[in-house]
């Protein structure tokens, strides 16, 4: 259950980005389109520890109906899915590349995402590497920086609201079903 289509509220809280960068890499309409359209999400840096943020996000996404593909060179299987050492090894198309690696590795991951023809690159909350974002955006990918996929899904599907958080969504339109 989430807000009706076309929600266009300014979502600006909790980001290290400048207003201009927020407009480019945190566009609420791009985020909503990605969450609606993506089916396969490669989680780069997914941990084997169930108490890490990456596990919280990946298990949430699985539960929300997304196919999660773990990218972790040190593990064989996470959350019941086969692990791959890098994006190039994944033998199927990837819609969204969600990154949980340090900023210093983001440029390399962005290049891999472009080479693997992924449709979108998403650098997680507090992970800011504008060069990586620029590189992916120039190659035609949708790019999100310094946001959490789970929080954004929760923002538009009611979950974040139930936790008492400020979704910044203001609308008089009725929620849509499902």
């Amino acid at each position: 259950m989430g807000p009706g289509p076309g929600v266009a509220c300014a979502v600006t809280l909790n980001s290290a980005l400048t207003p201009e960068q927020q407009r480019r890499f945190q566009d609420p309409l791009v985020i909503q389109r990605l969450l609606r359209g993506a089916r396969t999400v490669a989680v780069v840096g997914l941990s084997t520890d169930p108490q890490r943020a990456s596990w919280f996000v990946a298990s949430y996404l699985q539960n929300a109906g997304y196919r999660v593909i773990p990218v972790n060179p040190k593990a064989a299987e996470i959350l019941g899915e086969k692990c791959y050492p890098d994006l190039a090894s994944i033998p199927e198309p990837v819609d969204l590349v969600d990154v949980f690696r340090p900023a210093s590795e983001c440029l390399a991951v962005a290049r891999q995402a472009v080479a693997a023809r992924a449709k979108a690159l998403w650098l997680q909350l507090r992970l800011v590497k504008i060069e990586a974002a620029e590189l992916a955006a120039e190659a035609g990918l949708d790019v999100v920086v310094d946001r959490c996929v789970k929080m954004e899904h929760g923002r538009y599907h009611g979950g974040l609201h139930f936790a008492g958080m400020n979704t910044e969504i203001i609308t008089a339109r009725r929620s849509r079903r499902g």
């Binding site: 259950m1 807000p3 076309g6 266009a8 509220c9 300014a10 979502v11 600006t12 609420p28 309409l29 009611g158 609201h161 400020n166 969504i169 203001i170 609308t171 008089a172 339109r173 009725r174 929620s175 849509r176 079903r177």
Partner: peptide, 26 residues
């Protein structure tokens, strides 16, 4: 444009923020 994100004012948020009419009953 219709898609231009808007930052709504205090009085608007006072009566709308945090409540979206639910899908079941409206």
């Amino acid at each position: 444009s219709a898609n231009d994100p808007r930052k709504f004012g205090f009085e608007t948020r006072m009566v709308h923020a945090g409540h979206i009419p639910d899908a079941e009953t409206g």
